[in-house]
Design a protein around this nucleic acid. Structure first.
Ligand code: MN
Ligand code: MN
Ligand code: MN
Ligand code: MN
Lengths: 137, 137
DNA sequence: CCGGAAGCGTAGCCGGTGCTACGCTTGCAC
DNA sequence: GTGCAAGCGTAGCACCGGCTACGCTTCCGG
């Protein structure tokens, strides 16, 4: 996977980060829920994200349109191969950011919350540096 | 200013961060541009954010509705007292995050871009820790 | 086997944030 | 003073991602 070119304009990059954010968080959550209870239901996602099942429904439809998940009426939501790959990548990056915040001395609860937003704005360079920092602690 | 209660759910917090993000970035940009060239024009903001002047127009209207900026047709955009206060706070936080990334060893260009997104997801606790880290370097 | 609770789907609403197309206003060069 | 380029405003479009209201499906306990 080639590293996508970074826009010169920082706001353009941030908007791009946000455009992919929900997809990353959803596939990660689906993977988590599958691991924990065998299957992922719309209701599980609604609880996870603090939104109604209606919002989840339409988000899942978009993800299906984009080839990241599969779902049928009244059936669980599953990841496609592409979705699984994205989930793996997203979890890895999320974990690096979380462990970095903890290594820095941030409390568990705050680190958990902050990492959820920060993870999407960390470039490859910064991610490597965070990883090194955590390892060196 | 009392510290607003942090939601239990990390995604709820992240959504809240995003809801205030554009306002923070706009007032900060308006303040920057005023400092640099005396007045802030719609076109300046369009260039700064990498969007069309139409998008800026409607965003500025919302900011005016919310009491953060003042503007009249064909006139510069100015900050209200509330807008100026928000700009000051936002700049301070932005600067702490940027200096932290630099202290961590991230290159200038990457730090500039990453900080633009990260700044909105850093809680007070994490901000303090970042500040201490930077000072201790 | 069946009734009710939980889960799910859909219609229709809203605000936000991007765009193109098009025409008006302003200010400067000449 | 005029004309033109840059700036600006507005209409109208699209997609995203929240919501309530309402009705259908599933599945489990008795
Ligand atoms: Mn995540
Ligand atoms: Mn996240
Ligand atoms: Mn920003
Ligand atoms: Mn963000």
């Amino acid at each position: 996977m080639p590293v996508s070119k970074q826009p010169r304009n920082q706001h353009v990059r941030t908007r791009r980060d946000h455009a992919t954010e929900l997809a990353e968080d959803y596939v990660e959550a689906i993977d988590d829920i599958e691991r924990e209870k065998g299957e992922c239901r719309v209701t599980d996602l609604a609880r996870q994200f603090g939104v109604t099942h209606v919002t989840v429904n339409r988000t899942v439809s978009r993800l299906q349109r984009d080839g990241l998940v599969e779902t049928q009426p009244y059936a669980p939501v599953t990841l496609t191969r592409r979705g699984q790959r994205l989930a793996d990548q997203s979890r890895k990056r999320h974990e690096v950011v979380l462990q970095f915040l903890l290594a820095l001395g941030v409390s568990e609860e705050t680190a958990r919350v902050d990492a959820e937003g920060i993870e999407h704005h960390v470039s490859d360079e910064t991610l490597r540096i965070m990883q090194q920092f955590t390892a060196s602690q």
